[in-house]
Nucleic acid binder design. Structure first.
Length: 547
DNA sequence: TCCAAGTCAATAAG
DNA sequence: CTTATTGACTTGGA
């Protein structure tokens, strides 16, 4: 496509009136788009992933088995999706220079130009001085963006373990959706409770209330106005209490009675909580029935409660006959698994009280601890409790987003919370691998890409960026996290990437970086522009725990 | 079409 | 085996 007529560095140097002597020679460009590598071989022809990527994985494994010791055949080339894949060895792929040295200069220049254009367009004076400066700086951009690196030889990618715990199904996401999560959540006058939690976890530096070991959320009324205090915790938008305590996540009106709802799980009966929920609901109804929106919500809540009640009624026999040990995997004959499961589902789906806010950070930390303590695998927890994949769970738990920044994602945290409110035996029963809970129906609305007339479009194989390419992208991102579409095109061309991939990269990075700053208070993480000499790009984002 | 937020799911890391 | 990472896809809204 584009032809490299002249080394852009020359142009730049000439532009700023400097000699071109001493420029390092660079080889000619090769426009073969060889610098990003879809992971899966055999693609592009007529393979459609009707059976999911698994089918391809086995191909991979085949290659792997046959060629690993010397070199693994991989598809090389961002165009593999549209064209015939090119087989190259992994070694060769990694040892290749991903793109021309001049490339980064070009990109940098283009970005500078765009800035200039924007400035001009916006009527700002164009600072030639600054521009030259910027161009000049761009000369060493390549070295900054593409540090030397020594790609280790591919390690054994133990592919044999294609563990199919197979809770397959991209499960029904509907069940969660009828929880309300409108923004009137935020508009409410919110009353928070002080969130002092006491449990058997010792690592909490700010632990204060020491009471029953199982009462995770021992709540006490705590009045505050979430919008008036500037020392708000981004995670809850709640003020910190004077003594630095984490602030309670819950609003009055729902489950404020910690003893009643969560209390001592040794003695508590399911009926207790169900009743208590219903009671609260009714009370809420009286309090808020004036507003129409509110009454609509009310109806939803009531429906939820009905479901719970209903499910509970049907499964109550089970609880009555349930022995103390929940280790008995088989439910009593009088209550089917699906009924119980229904009950649990209803419990997990209970919406938070209107206006309530969860302290996601604290919640997740505790949940995480619980998982570790109880040896509950994420895979099963993810499916059973929040109905999501393991990877999703991991990210949600590990990097919880502030409540106020959440949209529909709030449902997940609510479910997490609800699960945690359950007495341990129920809690554990839900995630007991020995029990085969009925799999939630899949939302069959799998009308994937309807573009093509013949079935689902093939999935684009995952791109594996060359380390240097990845690094370059990161640097560019640092400079401009939100390039215009045009810029994206330039970047893609320059780095020999698919524009879609570049777009995805920026999109993903933006989203994944969004709360990092708020989380990272360590100065160590403050990115410093001048010490990335060596290859330190592999450990680039140690997202330092912020607890 | 673009974006953000939510996810999936392959696969790298531990 | 379990968990963390991350490119691509899906949804819902301009």
């Amino acid at each position: 496509m584009e032809q490299e007529l002249e080394d852009p560095r020359t142009i730049i140097l000439e532009n700023i009136g400097r000699s071109t002597e001493g420029l390092e020679n660079v080889s000619n460009d090769h426009n073969d788009h060889s610098y990003c590598k879809p992971l899966n071989s055999s693609h592009g022809s007529d393979r459609h992933y009707e059976n999911g990527p698994v089918a391809v994985a086995s191909d991979h494994q085949e290659n792997h088995d046959m060629h690993y010791s010397t070199s693994t055949n991989v598809v090389v080339g961002s165009n593999a999706y549209h064209q015939q894949p090119v087989q190259k060895s992994r070694d060769e792929y990694y040892n290749r220079e991903p793109f021309q040295k001049s490339t980064m200069i070009k990109i940098h220049e283009a970005m500078a130009r765009q800035r200039v254009y924007q400035d001009t367009f916006e009527g700002n004076a164009f600072d030639h001085q600054a521009n030259n400066q910027s161009i000049e700086n761009s000369l060493d951009v390549y070295d900054r963006y593409v540090p030397n690196y020594h790609q280790p030889l591919p390690t054994n990618t133990d592919i044999g373990s294609s563990d199919d715990l197979d809770m397959n199904e991209s499960l029904n996401q509907n069940d969660v959706e009828n929880n309300y999560n409108s923004d009137e959540y935020n508009q409410q006058q919110i009353q928070y409770y002080h969130h002092g939690y006491a449990n058997d976890h010792h690592h909490h530096s700010q632990q204060l209330h020491q009471s029953s070991t199982n009462c995770m959320y021992n709540q006490q009324p705590y009045l505050s106005n979430s919008d008036t205090d500037d020392s708000n915790d981004p995670y809850t938008n709640q003020p910190h209490s004077s003594n630095g305590q984490p602030i309670n996540p819950y609003r009055q009106g729902s489950f404020q009675n910690g003893a009643g709802f969560n209390g001592n799980n040794q003695r508590r009966q399911p009926s207790h909580s169900v009743k208590s929920i219903l009671k609260k609901t009714n009370r809420r109804k009286h309090n808020h029935s004036a507003d129409e929106m509110t009454s609509n919500k009310q109806i939803e809540i009531e429906t939820d409660m009905e479901k719970i009640n209903e499910a509970y009624r049907r499964s109550s026999v089970f609880y009555d006959t349930q022995s103390t040990s929940s280790s008995d995997s088989q439910a009593s004959s009088s209550s089917s698994n699906s009924e119980i499961s229904e009950y649990y589902e209803a419990r997990l789906a209970v919406p938070l009280a209107k206006g309530a806010a969860l302290d996601t950070k604290t919640l997740c930390r505790d949940i995480l601890q619980e998982l570790e303590a109880k040896k509950i695998p994420q895979t099963i927890f993810a499916k059973r409790v929040i109905n999501r994949s393991q990877g999703t769970l991991s990210e949600i738990i590990r990097k919880p987003k502030p409540w106020d920044s959440l949209k529909s994602g709030r449902n997940i945290y609510v479910r997490l919370f609800n699960w945690f409110q359950l007495p341990v035996d129920q809690r554990m029963e839900i995630v007991d691998k020995r029990i085969n809970w009925p799999v939630p129906e899949k939302k069959q609305n799998t009308r994937k890409r309807k573009r093509t007339t013949e079935g689902p479009a093939p999935k684009k194989p995952r791109t594996e960026f060359h380390p240097a390419t990845k690094n370059a992208l990161k640097r560019i991102y640092d400079e401009n996290p939100k390039p215009s579409s045009e810029m994206l095109g330039i970047i893609a061309d320059s780095l020999k990437l698919d524009k879609g991939s570049v777009t995805n990269f920026f999109q993903n990075t933006r989203r994944r970086t969004k709360y990092q700053k708020e989380c990272n208070h360590h100065p160590v993480n403050q990115y410093s522009e001048d010490e990335y000499q060596e290859d330190e790009y592999e450990e680039d984002q140690q997202q330092e725990d912020y607890y």
